[in-house]
Amino acid sequence: MKATWILPDGREIGLEVKPGLSLMEAAVAGNVPGIIGECGGTMSCATCHVYVADGWQEAAGAPSDFEEAMLDATDAPRLACSRLSCQLEMGPQIDGIVLRVPAV
């Protein structure tokens, strides 16, 4: 399975992601700039904030109430397509997903 992160400068990083792995974990392991995952996926830092690309938002699903609250604390502007990548688990429904890394 694959995910692609588009960096603020337009560069793309595509990574193979094992099923069940969070996209934050994959990004940190793949050294995707701008994805820090400081809290390790416990939704307490919002340093894995991403914008889900058009066409993938429905498949990614809506954030939980707690994730919604954390998204209000991001450094980059929050958009309707904002998600915490620690809450996006790789599976068949998001195989091929494209995420934009916000400029901070």
Rank of each mutant, 00 (worst) to 15 (best):
I36M: 09
A60H: 07
S22M: 06
E89Y: 14
P19A: 15
I6Q: 13
T4D: 01
E89M: 11
E67Y: 08
E25N: 10
A59W: 00
L15T: 08
S85N: 10
P63K: 01
D95S: 10
P63R: 09
I97S: 00
L23Y: 04
E25K: 15
W56S: 07
E68L: 10
I13S: 07
W56Q: 09
G14D: 05
D95H: 09
A62I: 06
A29H: 12
L15P: 02
S22G: 12
K2P: 01
E68S: 09
D65N: 10
V32I: 11
Y51A: 03
E12L: 05
C48L: 10
A29N: 11
Q93H: 14
R11P: 04
E68P: 06
R78L: 05
A103P: 00
C81L: 00
A53L: 08
W56L: 01
F66Y: 12
P33E: 03
P77I: 02
E12S: 11
S85T: 07
A73P: 02
P33N: 04
D72F: 07
S22Y: 09
R83S: 03
G55R: 08
P102F: 09
V28P: 02
M24I: 05
G91L: 11
S85I: 08
E16H: 09
L99I: 09
W56V: 10
T42V: 12
E25S: 14
A69H: 13
S82Q: 12
A103D: 14
C86H: 15
G20F: 00
L7Q: 15
K2Q: 03
V104A: 01
M1L: 12
V28H: 07
P63N: 04
P92T: 13
E58F: 05
L23C: 03
L84R: 10
V32G: 13
A60P: 04
Q57Y: 04
M1T: 13
R11A: 12
R83N: 04
L79C: 03
I36Y: 13
P8H: 07
A29V: 01
I94S: 04
D54V: 05
A59I: 01
S85R: 01
D9E: 14
H49F: 06
E38V: 10
H49S: 00
G61S: 11
L84P: 08
A3I: 03
A3H: 04
